[in-house]
Amino acid sequence: MKQGAALAAAAAVVIAALVLPMWIGPFYTRVLQLFFFSAALAVAWNILGGFSGYWSFGHTVFIGMGAFAAAHFVQQAGPFGSGPWAILVPVLFAGVLCGVFAAIIAYPILRLRGIYFAIAMLGVSQVVGELVNNVSWFQGGVGVFLPPPALDGMAPEDFFYYVFGGLLLLCVIIAMMVRKSRFGHALLSIREDEETAMMLGVATERYKIAAFVLSAMLVGVLGAVYAYSVGYFTTYTVFRLDFSLNMIVFCLIGGIGTLFGPIIGTAIMLFITQVLLSRFLDIHLLITGAMVVVIILLMPGGVIGALRAWRQSRATGKDREAEART
């Protein structure tokens, strides 16, 4: 019964999302497109950072790598197919390449923990970014073009709205499947206590690498589509520290390690920065920083954590337990 209601609600959201661009203007279509993109990134980051507790401060490396992989693929091999489907093969190639790269660096880098892993990922993203920028073959310094897909009549913002919307749905479904599976439970056990998990026979190494590769592939695909949506980009369009940080901040505000926390966090932050404060670009950093501090101090589990604590304290009349869970 409960599952049926959830399914119905999900279907309603999807249908509403499908017809929405007809009602709202191009500006809000773009805002929503940005929301889908950012939320999908946060969900993908959350598979590694939220479930297994390995916070990456450098996930933008996969956005950049995906974008450049797609562009070079099109340059070398030409577009595959025609119409909107032309983006499919380059985007998939970008995802696979990011997955391969992640698999290569995974073994050494996942031996690090906590802040060391976070900063090492930041280092990886900086090194790769600098290389793409300075090795002339990559053309990161001068920038590369990605020919826009032929859309016969459809506005590009509508097209990318649907693509990013579909990708967000895909990421959520994957995250859900991970969360409910043995794989997801293994990741949670790694987050709670890696030594104990290993001792109890959880193949921590393999699961961590799998989560890392999966997260990297999703972000790589998103990066490639993002590259298509901007058309022309340089290193600094896609290797951006603020992408990496936003993924963390959005998850944190919604509730790290939960399924829908990243989406809620993205919605809150984008609503504040893009809609409420769209005229006050100067103080975006101030607001974001203040939000981060306030959320950590007042509700360390994010919005979802606070809701759960509230529900539990109402049910049991004791909020000590709720605190212990977060």
Binding site: L252, L286, G289
Partner: peptide, 20 residues
């Protein structure tokens, strides 16, 4: 209130504000 790791994020948030 939260944890030692959370202090990392808090210092990061304060840094953003101060930079701004």
């Amino acid at each position: 209130r939260a944890s030692l790791v959370a202090s990392l994020v808090v210092t990061f948030g304060v840094a953003m504000m101060a930079r701004n």
